[in-house]
Structure formats: C-alpha cells, structure tokens
Design a binder for these strands. Structure first.
Lengths: 339, 339
DNA sequence: CTGTTAGCGCGTTCAT
DNA sequence: ATGAACGCGCTAACAG
C-alpha cells in the first residue's frame, strides 16, 4: 500500500500538504490540491487507520455494544443500526457492532481505553447497570439507549414509554374498552429493574386509572408458551377483558394462540395492541396486528448525535431525548363488543 | 493512560521486556514477568491498539459484514455472532459486526486496506457477488458464509442445502407423504443467483424424484402475505398436497395462515416442515413447527477458523466446510392422511 | 534470558 | 499557502 509520503513525492509536494489536503484543516491552493488528489487516485492511496489513530489520538470508531445479538433483533435493531451507522458516517466515524455479554463490563470499558473506539453506545440498559458504572469510573464517553435510574451527567436517548402506553390506553378507551390487560416483559426483568418493563407497567396503570379503566398487568417470559399461559390466566380471572396491550414480541404469539384456543375472535371479541414493535412483525399475524412502532431510526440517529456531542464537546444542538412510538393501524383493534 | 515505557520504568526493566512478557513471543524469567505483571496491574496499563496495529501491521480485528442487519429475525445471526466472537477471542482477535449495504463493495474492501480489520467474513453471499470480486482484486483475506459459483482459491463455509433438503424430503416420505410442496425464498433471489435459493430448489426436486414424490416448488417474497398467496395457489393447483417444506421464515407465517383459512389442520391434514430456521422460531406457531435448525454456532466457529488459517498461513486443520441442519421435532409433521 | 533501537504512517507545531 | 521535523506507543530485529 502506498503511504502519504509516496503521494507527496508523486505530487511534488510535502507530506504535510497531503495531510492537510485530506483533512481540510488548513487552506490548500486549488492547483496543489488537484495534483494531490490526482496522485492519491493514481496510487490508490488509503490513509492507514492505525497511524491516524496513533497520531490523532482518536480512532473515529463508535462501538455499539449489546448483550448477545441473539434474543430479539426483531428488525428494530436493524433499523437502529442502519440509521446510527449513517449518522456516524456523515460525521466521519465508523459505527460498529461489538458483541458483548452483559457481564463483560471491563471489556466494554477497555474498548475505549485501548483506543479501539472513541465512545460507546450501550443498548439494553437496566436501571442499575454495572456496565454504565464501569464506563463512568473510567471516564469513557458513552450514550445509553435506555436509561439508568440515575441520569445526572449521563448521555441518553430512550423510548417515551409513558407517552406510548398512555397513547395505547387512550386508543383502546376511545374504542369503548373498559377492561384491559397488559402483557409485559418478564418478571425477572421487572425484578432486576429493567427500565422499559418498570416504566411501561407504571404508565399503563396510571393511564388506565386516568381513563377509569379496569386494568390487569402481568409479566411473561419471552416465549409463546409463557404468553399463552399468562393470557389464559388473565381470561380466567377477568373474563370480561376485551383488550390486550402487549409489549413482548415473542409472548404475543402466545397471546393470540390463547385467544384462538378460547374461540375468541380478534378484533370482534378481543382487541390486541402490540406496542414497541413493528408493523412488519405485526404482519406475521392474522389478522395483522395494530402496533405502536418502535422508533428505531430516530433512536439510532439521536444516540449518535448525543455521543458525538459528548466526544467533540461542541456542535450540540438541543433535541428531545425521548422518542415516541406511533400507532400503526392494523386489523387487531376495534370497538369493544356489546355485552 | 500509562504507556509501556511507564510500566518498564515502574518494574525496572526495559520496554521490550514488557512487550515480550505480554506477547509471549520470547521467554521471560519467572521473577521478571511477575514484576512486570505487578506494574501493569498497579498502573492499570492497557496496550494502545493503534500503536500495536501500526507496529505489528495487523489490527487483530475481524470484520463480519452483512447487508443491513434488518432482514432476518431468526436469532441465527445471534448464534453465529456469539460463536464467531468466542472463537476469535480465543485466538486473540476481536470480532466486530460492520453494517454495510450490498452495494458498498469498495467500503468493505477498504476496511482491510486501511488496516481497520485484518480480514472479512462475508455473509449473504450470492453466486456472483461483486463484494467478493472486489476483495479478490485487492487480495483482501476473507471467508464467505455461503458460496459463490466459483470456489477456486476462495475460503468458505456453508450450510449443506443438498443434504438438508434431502433429509427434509426423506422425513416426509417416511411419513407416507407422496405430494409435497416447497416454499422457497423470493423469485428475485433465484433470478439473481442467491446460492441457498438455487441449491435448495435443485436439491428438493432431486430428492423428491429419488423418492418418487410429486413435487411442487414455488418462490415467495419474504412476507406473510406472499407466503399465504403462494400456499393458496399451490392448494388450488395440487389439492392433494399433504406436506409443505418451507425455507422462508417470514413467509412461513403466511403458509400456516392459508392452511387455517382452508380449515386444514396441522399436522392431521397437512404437515409443515420449516428448514434452515430454529426451534425458537418454530415455537411461535401453534402447534410448534418441526424444524431443521440452522447451524449458526457451527458456522460461526468454522468460518473464523477458516479466516484465521488464511490470515496466519498456518495452523490449518482440515475440517468440513459444509454443515448440516438437523431435525428438531415439533408437532407440525405427521403421517400422511388416508385419502 | 534481557536490553537497545529503528521504524510503523500520519497529525501537527513550528518555521517560512 | 507550503515545508520540515517531531513524536504518538508499540513490535521486532539486532546485540549481548
């Protein structure tokens, strides 16, 4: 591979001129710049990333870390990654996805301490997250997708669960439903203080109270079977339930199975509204689910903006940290049945 | 951050001793090594990745590139990534996922030319893949997950579609089915020569012929609606069809919908066997699908082994490049119905 | 077994 | 507007 020195010789200029022509950090004559660019083209020159990082003390890499890509990527991760990647690129950075188990706090922190990345985007943040503690202790720049309980001095963006669940309840209340159930993430996630689980439950209950609706909330493991059992239990206890809000992509498959088991038609007998998911996932059902779409793109863009602001100290344009899920009409919600 | 020079001073040894103690590239006295390690611990030293890459001319990074993480839900990617990541780590490398659109051939190649990565794992390879051409032209080390038509001098691992589809057909034939349909990936993927689509179709038809089975094969876009229409068309044309093999995770949701529309019970009236997917996805159906599990873990491990062999020139232990999907019993296949 | 030293390729400060 | 030169922190070749 050609080096910058090669380019300089080839163009008949000094090494630093090439460097400046590339970075734009100081003005270069039109004529000179053209010669430099021609030489670069001709030699197929590419700046060496290691040398760049070493001299500039920054890697221009942003690491998106998330616990085992396995679980549910659901397409939302894809949207997020694409948008984050694009935003990073526009700013001269690379966005890479770095698989880590939740326990590997040290490794995540060391990514930056070793100079492999300049900053970290952390997904699946819980209210008390050891990874965040490790990052803070080492003064590693980061942005959370989600929120710890403590927010002071921390950069974050998140889904507006309060607003989303309120909108969900309103949607159903407006359709005349008066007894509504909520199928949430797992009990474990609630116990360990996973933000979305906690916030969504609280918001659901508050919104139901505000609209004078009878509310049941249950947790469910991330499996169709668990969702089915949970739904069955709800129907046993509250046979007058006419609508379900679900925030558990995998369990929702079990919810509709349970309804079908009982010969309950969707949406004639029971409405189903799946929140924090996507219409694409909703389309896997028959009838297609009405959903409230997770704002993957928006979160991707905003989180990178936040991180870059922290990194470059500057260029900070105030923007909302909370992003709402919007209703995407399907065919699984309808008026409450006459009783 | 402390540098290696700091560590050396602190331990009262030379810089190179620290370097060698860390790399193990030459023997170090037990006593000396202990002092070095203590100093490292004490100073919280971490080797600077950029300096390491620059001096050693290798980044110790392997890039897994795949077109927009969006597409597949499957969890197979997750399994793959986890296994690949672990294998890489054991060899002193980092495995990172680098999102790229399929059109960005140059960018993928430049990853290595800029020294951001030492080699590339390419997913979703088609029979004639421009990304591979670009990598070859620049002599960038790579391993394909999947196969181009031409294989000479290329490193690859892949699912054994021939074997998988043969096993699928045998499973159904053994259950007495004599008219079987195959729901494949999209027509577009077939037209553009996507390996899995082409190989699976050919293998399905060959296996059916071998067992004297009437076979129908159709393509379907990756959506439940498309799967539903495709299934409906098959049933119109071949009402005697008693079993479906599907290799299209999203469309399979539509397949079962179409069967339900026609009051066909699974597996009593019609069997469904979903191949190259996972039991977890199969569990989203009622009854749970019998599947042939995509060997994500195995592919992840093997692909990194292949790439490392190419990279380090040595340590090559011969191992199979083709990995088979194994049957995971569910409740969606059963004996062919009496007619 | 340990020490000394020459780069790796580029960003950046200082001159001019 | 351009050039010269120093150093980022480390690996590896050479010397002992």
């Amino acid at each position: 591979m050609a080096t910058m020195q090669d380019v300089a010789r080839h163009a008949g200029v000094s090494l630093s001129t090439v460097s400046y022509a590339l970075s734009g950090a100081r003005p270069i004559g039109k004529e000179t710049r053209a010669r430099v660019m021609a030489a670069i083209e001709e030699l197929g020159f590419e700046r060496n990333a290691a040398a760049r990082s070493l001299a500039a003390r920054r890697s221009h890499v942003l690491a998106l870390v998330l616990p085992t890509v396995a679980g549910g990527l659901s397409g939302t991760l894809g949207e997020f990654a694409q948008s984050a990647s694009q935003t990073a690129r526009d700013a001269g950075y690379h966005l890479v996805i770095w698989p880590f188990d939740r326990e590997e706090h040290g490794e995540v922190r060391d990514l930056v301490r070793q100079g492999l990345a300049d900053g970290v985007l952390v997904m699946e943040v819980s209210l008390h997250d050891e990874r965040i503690d490790a990052l803070l202790a080492s003064q590693v720049p980061f942005t959370m997708i989600g929120r710890t309980a403590e927010l002071d001095g921390r950069s974050w963006v998140d889904i507006d669960f309060e607003r989303t669940l309120t909108d969900a309840v309103d949607h159903l209340a407006d359709l005349g439903h008066t007894t509504v159930a909520f199928v949430n993430h797992s009990q474990h996630s609630l116990d360990t203080g996973y933000g979305p689980t906690v916030r969504a439950r609280d918001a659901f209950l508050a919104a139901a109270a505000a609209r004078g609706i009878r509310a049941t909330d249950v947790t469910s493991d991330e499996s169709p079977l668990a969702g089915r059992l949970a739904t069955s239990a709800i129907l046993d206890e509250r046979p007058d339930t006419t609508a379900f809000v679900t925030m558990n992509e995998t369990a929702t498959f079990g919810v509709t199975q349970a309804l079908r088991d009982r010969r309950l038609r969707v949406p004639d007998d029971v409405s189903v509204l799946a929140v924090v998911t996507s219409p694409e996932v909703g389309a896997m059902y028959n009838p297609p689910l009405t959903t409230m779409r997770a704002p993957g793109h928006e979160l991707g863009r905003r989180s990178v903006e936040e991180l870059l602001a922290a990194l470059e100290g500057t260029t900070y344009r105030e923007a909302p940290r909370l992003v709402t899920c919007v209703l995407s009409p399907g065919a699984s919600t309808g008026p409450a049945p006459r009783r």
